[in-house]
């Protein structure tokens, strides 16, 4: 299958790969997995006291599209508020990366990772 240039770029030079300490109260961790392909994605957000995402890191085991989707998301969420980040849609990701229909689930995975991270943050703040 032919990957788009943007997917290849993110795959070969993934942005923000790595981890934060998940026990740090300002760190939100979202873990999601796609049973269809066995991909696993971890997205972590470093959130300021005012609710702005200062930094993001990811670790994804999966195909090129899954890696590119999570890499792109870490770039997109930086500087956004949690509410703004939660409005990122999988269709935006799929469109930006020109994902073919069979790889749409990779963008869904990335969207769900943001949501899971935000939920984790809210649960931590309670």
């Amino acid at each position: 299958m032919a990957y788009s240039d943007k997917v290849i770029d993110h795959y070969e030079n993934p942005r923000n790969v790595g981890s934060f300490d998940k026990n740090d109260p300002s760190v939100a961790t979202g873990m999601v997995g796609a049973p269809a392909c066995g991909d696993v994605m971890k997205l972590q957000l470093k959130v300021s006291d005012t609710g702005v995402i200062e930094d993001a890191k990811f670790k994804t085991y999966g195909c090129g599209s899954a890696i590119a989707s999570s890499s792109l998301v870490t770039e997109w969420v930086k500087g956004k508020s949690l509410d703004e980040a939660s409005s990122i849609k999988n269709t935006d990701i799929a469109q930006e990366l020109a994902l073919p229909p069979v790889k749409i689930h990779c963008s869904i995975l990335a969207e769900d990772a943001i949501k899971a991270a935000i939920e984790d943050y809210k649960a931590k703040r309670k």
Partner: peptide, 9 residues
């Protein structure tokens, strides 16, 4: 569930 795109959490 063969073609589902559900993610697990």
């Amino acid at each position: 569930i063969s073609h589902e795109t559900t993610t697990i959490k």
